[in-house]
Structures are given as structure tokens and as C-alpha cells.
Design a protein around this nucleic acid. Structure first.
Lengths: 208, 208
DNA sequence: TTCAAAACCGCACAAAAATGCGGAGCCTAA
DNA sequence: TTAGGCTCCGCATTTTTGTGCGGTTTTGAA
């Protein structure tokens, strides 16, 4: 079964290059190519491509804006963003819009085809540098100053259990301590986080 | 220049397997191996490895907990998490703790060495499925949040109050409705979200 | 018009959480 | 050796939550 691919890029040269690559690659089928987001928005739903190669810096409607719109009604259509810059804002805007992968235009042909296959199979290809940037988004050390840092390892583990929704007695079982010890953790953790309810504690925890 | 590697895993077999792999691989140098997080916590800073292979499911201190602690004082030390399960909680806990990559233990040796090099060079290797999960984390509105979409406007407002930690009677005051109406919202919202406690509801809400 | 839904209200009871008070043993750093 | 932090345990009480049952009114779409 072939992977149906569509291309959206306003650079004529790039577009024809990609188009030629897809056309001659076995296992791929080019179902459409567009020079701007507005047209793509209208035509893509009818073509039902599996994967769309989308330029980020389109003139007019931004690439990620186009992705966002289409994702709302066609969540299964996958988008692989192409760009010349490794710029953070574009990356996160695209991810928020629902794009599945993010590559540089200078990516080698073979690697690009791999990436399309990756996206089609549920992966999320991106350059190692961008992957690292995404991963770093999650780590708090940068903004580490929160009261969360003052928690001891056990308290932290307890808080994690809290956030998972377990009742005190379940937490006692899971951590292999008595329910009264759980209660004492409640006290110390709430104190350190300056909260007075489970919900507040969990919210603080989840927000880092 | 060699990449200094350390191993933390409580499974003797796995540890010696990894250890042998690193030792005979050119370009790598094994500087230490540990059976639990507590010892690793003490010894790793002195060894100053470039990359640490860390089992997630350590007995005692969890792997990601160990990472978090060390990252606070040694942010340049990189961690590559190893696990047998592709479980979401472990993944996000690890990323939040500051881990750079996440692989399954059944990863082929060659691929593992590649991953260590990746991490060392600023990349963030992970399985395609996990990468997709990370990427999806950013695109709640379109793709995921199915159950949240079924809430009526009032229910949504109520849920937001819940997430802000207000008690039922406070919510009643803020929304200018009776406390029993609040209770009925609790019922309908919990039903739609398939949860049975405030904490679970709030977590679902915050995560999309 | 008829029907479904949303929005609203009430009572009662059991379960869970929050908080007050107390204590013990262990380890580490001063 | 002493003080302090961490882990752990116990009991009692109040408050909050979860859920069982019931209901009315309004509104918008078929």
C-alpha cells in the first residue's frame, strides 16, 4: 500500500524538487501540490493525503496555521514541517498546531523519505537538536526555584501518587507505609507547597 | 576523545551486559556502574560521566528521582533512560527530571551506542512511538481531548473552578448557584470524564 | 408540538480528606 | 554529643467529597 503525499510550499524550485522525489520513490504517491496555505486548506480534505509536507514560512497564511485548521476537521492527516531555520518559535507553534515532525529543507532525500514513512507509522521525526529542544521544554531546572525543590524524595514520590489519584490507603499500600504516615506526608507536603487541599497540591506539582 | 559512560541498573544481568558492551566499544569508556539510585547519587558526581544509562524502575529510589537530584547540581551530566515499558508516566516524569533520551531495554546494541553518541552531541534519542507521544503533548486542542469537548459551557466553568482548588461551597458562591447544583455538576462532569475523584478530573483537565 | 438537553435545586449517607495533637528511630552535619 | 531533618506511626475530630435518590424550569432543535 502506498503512502499518499501532498506538498505545500511557495517556492517553485523546492516544490518541483520534492515533487520529483516523491514521484519516483516506490511506495509513495503524490496526490497534490500547492503554492499557498489558502488553496491547500480547500483542496487537501478532498485529496485525503496520509502525509503532508508543509513549508513553515509560507507567504500569507503561515504553515502551522494551515495545519491547525485542517487538524480540527481531519485529525488523522499527518503533517511533516519543512523549514530552512531551526527556530524555536516555529517549532513550538507547529507542534501546538498538531504537526508530527519537523525537518530542515536541506535534509537528504533518502532521509526525507524515511521521515515520511516514520510519520506515517506513528513516529515523530525531527533533527536531534530540535528533539533536544523539545525535551528541554519539559525539564524545570531552568525555572527551578519552585517550592517543589524543597521536597524530600519520599515526599515527592508521595506527591506523585497523589497526582495519580490514589486514595490515602492505596498510596499506603503502594509505598508500603501506614496510612497515618501518609497523613503525615500530607501535612509536610502541604506545608511546603503552601496549599490546603489535594487539588491545589496536584496542580502545583503538574505545573512544575 | 572518549565518551565517559556510567550505568545504573539493579538487574545484575542487564548491568553486566551493558557494561561489556560499553567496555569493548571504541570511543566509549565505562567509569562506573551501580545497582541502585542511592549509591549512584553519591558516586556519580565524583566520576563525572558524560552520559549515564539509567534504569527507570529501580528498587527504592526511582530512576527519574535520581536524575532530578543530580541534575540540580550537575546540569551538564546527561541521562539516557532505559526501561522495559513504553509507559507515558515514566516518560514524562523522566523528561521533567531532565533526562535527555528514553529507550527500551530491548534496543539493539549498535542502536544504543548511537543513542549515547546522540545524547553526548546534544540530541534526544527516543523510540518513534515515544517521540510521537511527546509531540502530541503539545497539540491537545485538536487531536486528543475527546472527553473534555463533550462538556457544556457551565460544566467547563465548574471544572475550571475545581482545578483552582475551590471547595464546593466556594464554587457555589463564585458561580452563584447552590451547593447542590455544584454537586450535580460533579456527577455529570465525572461521568463524562470517566473519573471518580476530584484529583483525577483536574489532572485530565490540565493535561487536555 | 414534542422531546432532549442543559441548568438548576434538594436531602441523606458513607467515604475520603484535612488537621490537631502526640510520639519513635535514624542519620548527618555542626 | 547535640540539634535538626527525614522517615515513620497513632488517634481523634471536623470538613469536604462522592454518590444514591429525587425534582423543576428553560431552551433549542426535530
Amino acid at each position: 500500500m502506498q503512502i499518499k503525499v501532498a506538498i505545500v510550499d511557495d517556492d517553485e524550485g523546492i516544490r518541483s524538487g520534492l515533487s520529483a522525489l516523491i514521484k519516483r520513490a516506490p511506495g509513495f504517491k503524490l496526490v497534490g501540490e500547492f503554492a499557498n496555505g489558502e488553496i491547500a486548506l480547500k483542496e487537501l480534505p478532498g485529496l485525503a493525503p496520509d502525509v503532508v509536507l508543509m513549508d513553515i514560512n509560507l507567504t500569507g497564511m503561515k504553515g502551522y496555521e494551515c495545519v491547525r485548521q485542517i487538524k480540527l476537521s481531519h485529525p488523522k492527516m499527518q503533517f511533516l514541517m519543512l523549514t530552512v531555520y531551526e527556530d524555536s518559535d516555529s517549532l513550538f507553534n507547529s507542534l501546538r498546531a498538531g504537526a508530527s515532525g519537523y525537518l530542515l529543507k536541506r535534509t537528504a532525500s533518502a532521509r526525507l523519505l524515511d521521515a515520511i514513512r516514520d510519520v506515517f507509522n506513528g513516529g515523530a521525526p525531527m533533527t536531534p537538536q530540535l528533539a533536544r529542544r523539545v525535551v528541554q521544554f519539559f525539564s524545570m531546572p531552568a525555572t527551578e526555584s519552585a517550592p517543589l525543590a524543597k521536597l524530600t524524595p519520599s515526599e515527592r514520590e508521595f506527591l506523585d501518587q497523589l497526582a495519580n489519584g490514589y486514595a490515602y490507603k492505596e498510596i499506603a499500600g503502594r509505598m508500603d507505609i501506614s496510612i497515618d504516615t501518609v497523613r503525615s506526608y500530607v501535612r509536610t507536603v502541604y506545608e511546603k507547597l503552601h496549599v490546603h487541599s489535594r487539588t491545589e497540591a496536584v496542580v502545583k506539582y503538574l505545573r512544575g
